[in-house]
Amino acid sequence: MATILYARVSTTEQTVAHQRTQAEAAGFRFDHVLIDDGVSGVSTRLVERPEGRRLFDMLRSGDTLVVRWLNRLGRNYEDITAVMREFMRRGVIVRTVIQGLTFDGASKDPMACAVRDAMIGFMAASAQAEAEASKEAQKAGIAHAKAREDAYLGRKPSYSREQFEDVVNRLGMGETVQAIAKATGITRQTIYRIRDNQAEAEAALARWAA
């Protein structure tokens, strides 16, 4: 039974090394590491990515797949749920680094399966909503910059896009600001700003082309 880390990054600011380091710091050890670098999760389904295809070929019953968050598998509700249904059907265990969630494809208990599938649906919907909000905020930031090329961009964000996604995901799962600050290294004040005005926090990244 193998443990496989799957990592995906779509921008130059995000790093695969960070995803692996974060997973190792959480106690995970891997037999294989598969990486899709510079691949969009919005426009490219997992099965269409080079290492994503390998993942489908490699995973067997009893294997464990580790991902930073389910949005590494996709940013579309239908795509994520279809992928997870296939992995659950195969008897694969999927574990997330953020929140340390476990989705057990080997479970036969109907109640446990119902809770598992409901959580998958929630996380898939959150991933798509986040992707759509990010796209709209980027468009707004770009439009603002084009309209006022000489405009003051404001203070450069103290967080990367990867950190921003991490904070949004953790807030969505109900973590406290203090716990998120400890886990991400971002100040509580910054997390409060992201929580209270996520669109502006995202737009700030877009204005600075982050």
Rank of each mutant, 00 (worst) to 15 (best):
128 Q>C: 00
129 A>Y: 14
71 N>G: 11
160 S>I: 02
144 H>D: 08
37 D>C: 13
12 T>P: 02
88 M>W: 10
74 G>D: 08
112 A>S: 12
131 A>P: 15
38 G>E: 07
35 I>L: 05
187 T>F: 05
154 G>T: 03
100 G>H: 04
49 R>Y: 06
93 I>R: 14
79 D>G: 03
70 L>Y: 05
19 Q>S: 09
46 L>V: 14
2 A>H: 13
90 R>K: 00
22 Q>V: 02
108 K>N: 03
190 T>W: 04
120 I>A: 01
49 R>D: 10
58 M>T: 06
170 R>K: 13
93 I>C: 14
101 L>R: 10
80 I>P: 15
63 D>Y: 14
1 M>N: 13
167 V>S: 12
140 A>W: 02
186 I>C: 10
107 S>Y: 05
98 I>V: 02
49 R>K: 11
183 A>M: 11
38 G>P: 13
101 L>M: 07
169 N>P: 07
22 Q>H: 06
70 L>G: 00
130 E>P: 07
204 A>G: 00
2 A>M: 12
58 M>K: 09
135 K>Q: 05
196 D>E: 10
8 R>Q: 02
71 N>T: 12
4 I>E: 04
143 A>G: 01
3 T>C: 15
161 R>D: 05
125 A>E: 04
86 E>G: 14
129 A>M: 13
76 N>S: 10
181 A>P: 14
6 Y>F: 10
172 G>P: 00
5 L>V: 00
43 S>R: 13
29 R>W: 07
98 I>W: 09
5 L>I: 00
101 L>E: 09
64 T>W: 03
31 D>K: 12
149 E>G: 15
125 A>T: 06
65 L>Q: 14
70 L>N: 00
187 T>A: 14
205 L>D: 05
98 I>N: 04
131 A>R: 02
209 A>G: 12
120 I>K: 11
47 V>P: 04
99 Q>M: 09
18 H>C: 07
133 A>M: 07
37 D>L: 15
120 I>T: 01
6 Y>W: 06
12 T>Y: 03
44 T>Y: 08
37 D>H: 15
16 V>Q: 08
151 A>T: 03
97 V>Q: 07
85 R>S: 15
148 R>D: 15
104 D>W: 11
95 R>Y: 08
86 E>T: 15
156 K>N: 06
84 M>C: 01
42 V>L: 12
39 V>H: 15
149 E>A: 15
138 Q>E: 10
174 G>T: 01
49 R>V: 07
207 R>W: 04
4 I>T: 12
165 E>R: 15
66 V>Q: 09
140 A>V: 07
194 I>S: 05
68 R>P: 08
97 V>L: 01
51 E>H: 12
209 A>V: 02
54 R>L: 04
140 A>G: 10
21 T>F: 05
137 A>F: 08
177 V>W: 13
